[in-house]
Amino acid sequence: MRLSWFNITSLTLGFAFLYLPMIILVIYSFNESRLVTVWTGFSTKWYGELLSNQAFLDAAWVTLKVAVFSSTLATVLGTLAAYALVRGARFPGRTLFSGMIYAPLVMPEVITGLSLLLLFIGIGLDRGVLTIVLAHTTFSMCYVSVVVSSRLVSFDQSLEEAALDLGCSPWDAFRLVTLPIIAPAVVSGWLLAFTLSLDDLVIASFTTGPSATTLPIKIFSAVRLGVSPEINALSTLMIAVVTLGVIIASLISKRNFVREQHGGEGRH
């Protein structure tokens, strides 16, 4: 099918709109001037300043810790929840359970953050890395659960029955058959949870204490007052990491795809 000029224009303008702001950001991160909007010359000095800024490095470390812990925990809990929702036929409070899985997806972050903060104060839990991890786990497990359950729904239940039939205990059937098959969904669930945690400003701001500042909180307080060249550099680094990650992921999945298609060919 050939595209009409109208469609070509829509795509060009659409993707320009999506990508130009970030491209400009990347370009101006190499600007020498402190006045971000005036180009005076190429320089990488803001990267140097960023990397020698201990506060930013500390925040990055906290963010990474929180993201790794919360996304791993969220993946375990979210997968369990998806399994319970799709496979667990009927149990008391099922409606409440599925409501609690879907509600955090549409709940404004300010409310999730506020309510968790009030809980942590109520039970006297010191706010810091632990409370952010708990908060992030709670909302990202719901995303994981949605991703995993959409895979489980299309999963042929007779595969599990076949495993039982061939002598597996229920746990072995899950470990040897179900888990390998839903693994791609579990991995994307983890990645989603990880990104959500890296990204989150609002919930982290509510649930953190003075001991733990995450990168988004740091960025937010820096940019509230206006554009800053260090933040441009930091943004560029973050965009680079994501782009690299997406490229690697797509290469891996392409290679797996190729191997799948030709895997059995060697033998005959």
């Binding site: 042929d156 007779s158 029955e161 076949a162 039939d165 058959v177």
Partner: peptide, 11 residues
């Protein structure tokens, strides 16, 4: 007892 499934249920 073993079963051959309608969908074959091959892993």
């Amino acid at each position: 007892v073993n079963m051959m499934f309608q969908s074959y249920a091959l892993f």
